[in-house]
Amino acid sequence: MTIATGIGSMPGEDIAESIRVVLGELPELPYLPELPARGAGAHMIGRALALVDLDADLQPAGWRLTGTAGGRGRDQRRAQSRLAQDLDVLEEQTQDYTGAFKVQVTGPWTLAATVERPRGDRLLADHGARRELAEALADGLTSHIHDVHKRVRGITRLVVQVDEPSLAGVLAGAIPTASGYGRHRSVDLPEASALLEIVLGAVTAEGAEPWVHSCAPRTPWSLVRGAGARGLSVDLSLMSPADHDVLATALEAGETVALGVVPSLDATISDKQVVTSVLRWLDMLGLDPEELGPRLIVTPTCGLAGASPAYARTALAQLRTSAAALS
């Protein structure tokens, strides 16, 4: 049957309430929410840096590596503490839970396009630094996966969603330099694939299922799939004809496609509209939802951090009822 899940971020600052909402509305594939409203350490970049063994701190321009061994900054330590506390709350609320579960992490290219080197400018400008970052992220994810399994012992399928909204910009040479007057050089496709493969391979090695999510246009889904992603999480409204072909191939190969079909900001949309848009897409590809089963997933178009709490709950409930109708 078709199932529903969320992207990751939620509005508000109450992690216990967010986890309760996710567990209640998305019983087939709940996830650990991210609450960016709590500050930079709870945003996707700070959350990822909480996992890596690289010293970082928050500067006026954003996150920067300090280059000081063993000298993790206060903000990075705070992000690590916040993640540990969120996992404590998750453990408390999933004592009797059995089933699939999802966690999210920012991918290596989005981190490289955002985090600065000790002397300034993005890590993206340094070949060695961006590879070191990917390897550190892979190591951190390995430990994180172990921790999640230890805390939620009823997990039967763990999905690790790697968020790469900047990947298309990295490949297009569209990431601005620190000054804002220039652009970083585009990254070659083989290197883009190789560094993503380091992270996705670490997920697979731990028995988890690697997905890649992006709600940015022109994301190279063929490259993502070739790097080892076994789930593609997309905004259906941004798909090109070539993207449709990649998604169809993935589904036919037994992989997962998560379609973003419910707006991530407050809006009015009916279950009928959601179901119709999915069925129209499947009909275009010549695919039957009944044959796809849980490989077809419906989601919001992107994270829900910018939505109102009431709408976020409504959106997740609507995804659940739409998934049931598709089944």
Results as ranks from 00 to 15, higher is better:
I3F: 06
G6R: 04
G12R: 13
A16G: 13
E17M: 12
I19S: 03
R20T: 15
L23H: 03
E25I: 11
L29G: 03
L29H: 07
L29F: 04
L32C: 10
P33M: 02
P36Q: 07
A37P: 13
A37Y: 09
R38T: 06
G39Y: 06
R47H: 15
A48T: 06
V52M: 09
D53T: 04
D55M: 09
L58N: 06
P60M: 05
A61G: 10
A61Q: 15
G62R: 06
G71Y: 09
R78G: 11
A79G: 02
S81H: 11
D88K: 11
E91P: 06
E92V: 15
T98F: 09
T98E: 13
G99Y: 02
K102N: 10
P108I: 00
A112M: 02
T114H: 03
T114A: 13
E116S: 05
R117D: 09
P118Q: 07
R119M: 11
R119F: 14
L123C: 11
A125H: 10
D126P: 05
D126A: 14
D126S: 14
L133W: 02
A134K: 05
E135R: 14
A136R: 05
L137P: 00
D147G: 10
H149C: 10
R151S: 01
R151F: 04
V152I: 15
V152T: 09
V160P: 03
Q161E: 04
E164F: 07
P165Y: 04
G169P: 08
A172D: 15
A172W: 10
P176N: 01
P176C: 00
S179P: 09
G180H: 12
G180I: 12
R183F: 14
V187P: 10
L189Q: 10
A192F: 12
L195I: 13
L195R: 13
E197I: 06
V199D: 01
L200K: 00
G201D: 02
A202M: 02
T204P: 00
G207R: 00
C215Y: 11
P220N: 05
S222K: 12
G226A: 14
L238E: 05
S240R: 09
A242P: 01
L247I: 02
L251H: 08
L251F: 02
E252M: 14
E252V: 14
T256S: 11
T256D: 09
T256F: 14
P263D: 13
S264E: 11
V274S: 12
T276R: 14
V278H: 04
V278G: 00
V278N: 03
L282H: 01
M284S: 12
G286V: 08
E290N: 15
P294F: 02
R295Y: 09
V298Q: 00
L304W: 01
P309I: 03
A312H: 00
T314S: 15
T314G: 10
Q318R: 15
A324I: 14
L326Q: 08
S327F: 03
S327Y: 01
